[in-house]
Design a protein around this nucleic acid. Structure first.
Length: 420
RNA sequence: GUGAGCAUAGCUCAGUUGGUUAGAGCACCUGGUUGUGGCCCAGGAGGCCAUGGGUUCAAAUCCCAUUGCUCACCCCA
């Protein structure tokens, strides 16, 4: 038997209502904040991600689905959306048409990691990008949108974490200070952290190892070494969150893995999923557009993992979908009337009803059971005796009452079914 | 890439210290008088016990390997 590829999942009809529900909330919320949907290709030139996300990141160095196409081009299935959106933004000069572009998306992503709870190789994200303004209100807006969506989905066990990485100059200064602090303790660091000491010293804060954390307790924090402009930016983000009633905590150790972040970074974490607890993450990236060959335009954005969010909803039992119903199930009593039944079903469907009928030549009893299983509001019975008189039987499945209806009187059938 | 656990019907799981035709519940199908659902009752279908090898008179059960899944690490959404 051929099975779905490792780390991929089928979304079966039983799950679709939850996905639709989430997608509707996302679209409605984004629309209210005046974000416009954008769709970019599933694959892009590999160099886009290498440059945009950063060569040294885990995503680029070991997680991308990269392949050579028949023309010899190196292509990559998108591992995240920001690089593609920025590429499209630059390619179509969207900044010339509008000074601030607020965009959102819902899309599959691909990363070749070992699957576990809340992590897949093909997964789905919704997210937003605002390109063209350095206003801290937009940083806060990202968090508000994400948080509001989670709240509308009924999630409770949430915490918002924010931090500021400042601008590159103050960050470089701080890195020096951190290096000086850690140097005397270098030998006590784990091997992984020793490596990061040279490649990306800030990421040592990501370590969950006790021996690293013990050393880091007294480490100088980036947030204490921000320049005035960055501090001011951060303060404005915080006050915007406060005025919007978003509970948040400052996590000075929130150092996100992608190279392009400046100023604000944030995560919304759920206590209701496994160890992959970040429902969304994002931040400001004022250097990325230029890095990708565009004008010097600032940006801010976030992305949220749909599978993780739905997992949290499932674990918190925060969503309930109503049972499916059909309007009419057509029961054909005599086999020779099936062509009339078919014609009637099509006609009722064209007039707007959700209609099902028997395609398996089953007994009346079996058809009735089927109607019940589909949770039919009405059964329309086509039988020899009544048919000879020119009428059909319409049975209300909750009351059990039956009435006769002229066999071509679709309007009467429809008005009865619609409850008028 | 590293580690641990698991693998029996469509689903959730039983299966004794290895012992004869491998079980239950749910779901599915057919009936319970000639043309009427739910509840109930009766019956039916459905398993190479993940795959391959080994130990044994005898393996779903013990051993080894392979594959797959799950969870965790790394990292991330």
């Amino acid at each position: 038997m051929i099975k779905a590829v490792t780390g991929t999942k089928d979304i079966l009809p039983a799950d679709i209502p939850y996905w639709r529900h989430l997608e509707n909330i996302v679209t409605a919320t984004m629309t209210r904040f005046n974000y416009k949907e954008i769709r970019t290709p599933v694959f892009e030139d590999t160099s886009l991600f290498a440059r945009g996300i950063g060569e040294s990141t885990d995503i680029v160095s070991k997680e991308m689905y990269t392949f050579i196409d028949r023309g010899g081009a190196s292509l990559t299935l998108k591992p995240e959306m920001t690089a593609g959106v920025v590429r499209a933004f630059v390619e179509h000069s969207l900044d010339k048409k509008q000074s601030l572009n607020k965009l959102f998306y819902i899309s599959p992503m691909f990363r070749q990691e070992r699957p576990q709870a809340g992590r897949f190789r093909q997964f789905h994200q919704f997210g937003a990008e605002a390109l063209g303004s350095n206003d801290p209100l937009l940083d806060a807006e990202m968090i508000i949108i994400a948080y509001d969506i989670f709240v509308q989905l009924g999630l409770k066990n949430l915490s918002v974490k924010i931090n500021s990485l400042g601008v590159p100059e103050s960050r470089e200064k701080y890195k020096k200070i951190l290096r000086e602090f850690l140097l005397p303790h270098f030998e006590q660091l784990t091997n992984e952290s020793k490596k990061r000491f040279d490649t990306n010293i800030l990421r040592i804060f990501d370590s969950k190892e006790g021996q690293d954390q013990k050393i880091l307790v007294n480490a100088p924090l980036l947030i204490e070494h921000l320049d005035n402009e960055s501090l001011e930016h951060f303060e404005k983000v915080k006050s915007a969150l406060l005025s919007s009633n978003i509970p948040f905590e400052i996590d000075p150790k929130l150092v996100r893995g992608l190279d392009y972040y400046t100023h604000t970074t944030f995560e919304v974490v759920s206590g209701s999923v496994g160890s992959q607890s970040a429902l969304c993450g994002g931040g400001r990236y004022n250097l990325l557009v230029k890095e990708l060959g565009g004008p010097d335009i600032p940006g801010v954005g976030f992305a949220s993992g749909i599978e993780r969010v739905l997992l949290a909803c499932e674990n918190e039992k925060s969503l309930q979908t109503s049972a499916d119903q059909i309007d009419i199930y057509l029961v054909t009593i005599e086999k020779n009337l099936s062509s009339f039944a078919y014609k009637t079903a099509v006609e009722l469907r064209r007039k707007g009803s959700l209609v099902e009928m028997d395609y398996l030549s089953r007994s009346v009893k079996a058809q009735m059971r089927e109607a019940n299983k589909f949770n039919a509001k009405y059964v329309l019975m086509i039988g020899g005796d009544e048919f000879a008189k020119g009428v059909l039987l319409l049975k209300n499945m909750s009351s059990g009452e039956q009435m006769e209806i002229m066999k071509e009187d679709f309007d009467k059938i429809l008005s009865t079914v619609k409850g008028k």
